[in-house]
Design a protein around this nucleic acid. Structure first.
Lengths: 117, 117, 117, 117
DNA sequence: GTGGTCTAGACCACC
DNA sequence: GTGGTCTAGACCACG
């Protein structure tokens, strides 16, 4: 369900965070569903438990999951989260749009690219 | 012409690189134009010359400027570079598009956003 | 495994880069093998860590190694790199060939030299 | 007869030295022929006379030209110089050969390349 | 004055 | 522990 790419320069914990956000936003993980424990996840990916811990803490901070001590980590209300993620993607899109403008491109070029994909 | 944002977590040298790439791509800096010397730039921004050095080395590596020892740094053929930068922006756009798909969004949402800007 | 020659006018970081490229191309270092950490290398050669850093950054840029933050630097797919290095050597050979022609020599002289080595 | 390439990272004075060495070795310039004065050369190439001075000094040091105060600079015995240059080229070839061996290549590959040019 | 390299020492993010 | 960035200050080659 989740995997890591050591060749990718983005921090491992961040790779994990991103993948969970995608899984939740796309509906693969549903509201109140339990996600793997820190230990299991660490063993499965054979990485340091601290790294998983950090990823889960970040997911909780951003509101994607909630923690119940002694029971595990669970997905928050997924419908709301989909909107959250959508907004985040649009913010990234906004960044690209601004980058394009700063370098003298027209927004139309971006639209053309998306349509021709 | 160029400034740095200490609150921005991206490395200073990278901020400088990006700004020069934009200035060149947008035609503000023209072919063979001299850019500020390492020392002047460092004093103006009150940061260490080594940091500017690193930024300029990266710009040269990416082909945006060329260096003449003892004389300074100069803008490469700007027309070609604009295309280079355009391609780079489209790659960033592609990343966002893939991120959108992974989280269950439709590309149309992105196009809508761009058109309504 | 690696050493530096202070009498050599080529920059220290470049000497290190070249030696690693040779070690990788010749198969002494194999795919995914870990190379010494920046700090260890610096202590062993008793030079500044920044210089090693620069060398490793250059090796990564040229695709010979990849970096995992917090873990270290590792050799990329060595088989492909051997071809890369071969191509580089042939480019150097081409330079010599052109130099020979400019100064009125015959290519045959070069071949004779290589055969009589 | 001689020109400089500012985009080339090799020092200007060295570019001039190399070109004269080639012109002499290939017989374009003959024994005791006068070469342009420092001033003329500097004006023609629109560069600093000091740079030409440095180039001529280097050529004299290597035995390619000799200076007569108040009269100018002249080409040394060209036949000997051709051999000198030949030897230099072979030394460069030797460097490439050693580089090839260090990276696990066969000398035959170099010969093949030269023959197929 | 220009860029290029190196040292010494520090701080941060990541694992 | 790892690599990445930055500062401060120095020396060299080049023009």
């Amino acid at each position: 369900m989740v995997w890591i790419d050591v060749n990718d320069s983005t921090p491992i914990y961040e790779q994990i965070v991103n993948q969970f956000k995608n899984l939740i936003a796309s509906g693969v993980l549903t509201t109140d569903e339990k996600i793997p424990s820190v230990r299991n996840m660490a063993m499965e990916l054979s990485i340091n438990p601290n790294t998983i811990q950090k990823a889960y803490a970040e997911l909780e901070r951003q509101g994607y999951i909630y923690t119940v001590k002694g029971r595990g980590n669970f997905v928050s209300q997924a419908e709301k989260l989909a909107k959250l993620k959508t907004q985040e993607v649009l913010e990234h899109l906004e960044s690209v749009a601004q980058e394009a403008e700063k370098s003298g491109m027209e927004i139309k070029q971006l639209i053309d690219y998306l349509e021709s994909r």
